[in-house]
Simulated assay, not measured.
Amino acid sequence: MSSITKQIQFVKSQIADYCQQYHREPHAVQLLAVSKTKPLSDIAEAYACGQRHFAENYVQEAVEKIQQAQLSDWQNEPIQWFFIGPLQSNKTRLVAQHFDWVQSIERLKIAQRLSDQRPEEMPALQICLQINISQEANKSGTDFEHVFELAQEVSKLPRIQLRGLMAIAQKFDDPQLLDESFSRLQQCFDQLSQLYPNIDTLSLGMSGDMGAAIAHGSTMVRIGSAIFGARN
């Protein structure tokens, strides 16, 4: 058994334990394996033990992996590719043409370009709006005050589908502050899901704050180094 297989099994057991602890359904939280900087051989190991959702931050690197994966024998159960990094206007066409999800939308302009550039023969591109829940200057994301307006405009666009929210937590020394920021995000998610029936995804939580994220309604946790080891 490879180390990647062991780590995926361990992370999934952690997710199951947190779901039980916080009275969530066992399969309510999906594992998104963050494979940025890692070779396709590592992704193949994770795929072999059942992982199908992979996330990337760097467009050109990711597109090369996606194209290689399309030549593999994985097409009966294809990978779902998620883009989770900051997205510049000059890279939207590549993302629109190759990814299944984009979880880092903070501006209408980027969503509009993805909508315009999504090939008509492909399924709708699934979209999450990124919220900067702690208003940190070095983090991407819109703020709580503008997310409802952004959701209203993005939901009108063709060839993309609004599915939820994504956030990256600030590293707090005080767990109560983390809980407060996650609680506010959960309330925002609940309000949006009442307005838009397709909203069902709260992408929240990484290795260090996965438990708190699951306690506050996360439906998808993004785990990288705990599966694949330190970044290259």
Rank of each mutant, 00 (worst) to 15 (best):
M1N: 12
M1W: 04
I4L: 02
T5E: 15
Q7P: 05
Q9H: 13
I15C: 01
A16K: 10
Y18I: 01
Y18R: 06
H23T: 05
H23A: 13
P26Y: 12
P26A: 14
H27P: 03
Q30S: 11
L31H: 07
L32T: 04
A33S: 12
A33N: 05
S41R: 13
A48D: 14
A48E: 13
F54M: 02
F54S: 13
A55E: 03
A55V: 00
E56V: 08
E56D: 03
V59R: 00
V59M: 09
V59I: 06
V59H: 07
V59P: 06
E61S: 09
A62F: 00
E64N: 14
K65Y: 06
K65D: 01
A69Q: 14
Q70K: 15
L71F: 07
L71N: 14
D73K: 12
D73C: 06
W74Q: 06
W74E: 02
Q75L: 12
N76E: 14
E77F: 05
F83D: 11
I84K: 00
L87S: 10
T92M: 05
R93K: 14
R93Y: 10
A96G: 07
H98S: 12
F99N: 09
F99L: 09
V102W: 08
I105K: 08
L108D: 12
L108W: 14
R113M: 07
R118S: 10
E120C: 13
Q126R: 14
I127C: 04
I127D: 05
I127V: 14
C128N: 09
I131F: 04
Q135C: 07
E136Y: 06
D143F: 07
D143H: 12
E145A: 15
H146T: 08
F148H: 13
Q152L: 11
E153G: 02
P158W: 02
R159W: 14
R159I: 00
R159H: 12
Q161W: 03
R163A: 01
Q170T: 07
Q170V: 01
P175C: 03
L178H: 02
L178F: 09
L178K: 08
D179S: 15
D179C: 13
E180L: 15
E180A: 13
S183W: 03
R184N: 02
L192A: 02
Q194P: 04
Y196H: 08
N198R: 12
I199N: 12
D200E: 11
G208I: 00
D209M: 10
D209E: 05
A213D: 11
A213V: 01
A213T: 00
A213S: 11
H216S: 05
T219S: 13
M220R: 11
M220F: 02
S225T: 15
S225E: 09
I227W: 01
I227D: 01
A230Y: 00
N232D: 08
N232A: 11
